[in-house]
Amino acid sequence: MTIVEIGLPKRLVELTLDGESVRVPEGATILDACTASGKSIPTLCYGDTLKPANACRVCMVEVEGSRTLVPSCSRKVEPGMVVRTDSERTTHSRKLVLELLGSATDLSTTPHVDEWMSACGADPSRFGPSAPPSQDRDERRPGEHEEIDGSVAATVRQPTKVDNPLYVRDYGKCIMCYKCVDACGDQWQNSFAISVAGRGFDARISTEFATPLPDSACVYCGNCIEVCPTGALSFKREHDKREDGTWDESKQTETTTICTFCGVGCNLTLHVQDNEIVKVTSPHESTVTHGNLCIKGRFGWQHVQNR
């Protein structure tokens, strides 16, 4: 991948990464530097097409002289910076963040999270048995919570929202990474159909007054689903196939083509399983779409397989 946008020639900045000297272009982030030197840092709220949200704290690293750990996805490198990605503090932080997330959220469809958890020995179950799903998360008020006794671990488990034919919102899997809100808002789509509502542990992604998606400003571009890192948001088609056990990525092929609906010329990647289109995405590196599409490109393909 490209480390930073190719523009004017950039000065190289030298820093120390886990004891080794590394040179990366000025303006690169610590995460860019890690990627360039072959180090894999877990990320969840980081998106290659979005501004860093700094929310998940999975990618924290230690920078000499900093009181706290710093998010590698957003912190820019500085000359002489001494960074540790493998110190005890970093490992502890990563382990705990994954445990906290795992104890509160269903991560069963989050790619890579199992590997990350076992690599640092994370055990989300040690906070106690999960509390039962709640029906009232959309109505919770900020600044108060029910009295507890510590016998169960609070979770965000809740009923899945299926209120339209194209999307499924399973917020029991939501880690509050802000990516869907950013993709829907001023970073890409400018629809502003969803926002973060509520506060603290009761913070949630919501339309105004939790109104169903068809009554909201949603234009069904699917760009929120494209950036969702956990599968909390999914296409109805994929969701249904997963439910009935027929979703099989190993049997899928990906073919990139050009959308025929208008003159913009967006790249479409058709995900095909058993000679049937099951999902449409767009390459994030496409200079036309940056991974975004509209409702037609994203969902207007049923006619192709009307046999």
Partner: peptide, 30 residues
């Protein structure tokens, strides 16, 4: 702290909840 966390980052949003839960068990010897 649980009530006043804004909820933006994971350590505080979930950590303050786990802290309250564990403290309840500790204080109540349960």
């Amino acid at each position: 702290f649980r009530d006043e966390s804004c909820g933006q980052c994971v350590p505080c949003r979930i950590g303050t909840v786990r802290q309250e839960e564990a403290l309840h068990r500790l204080v109540g010897k349960r």
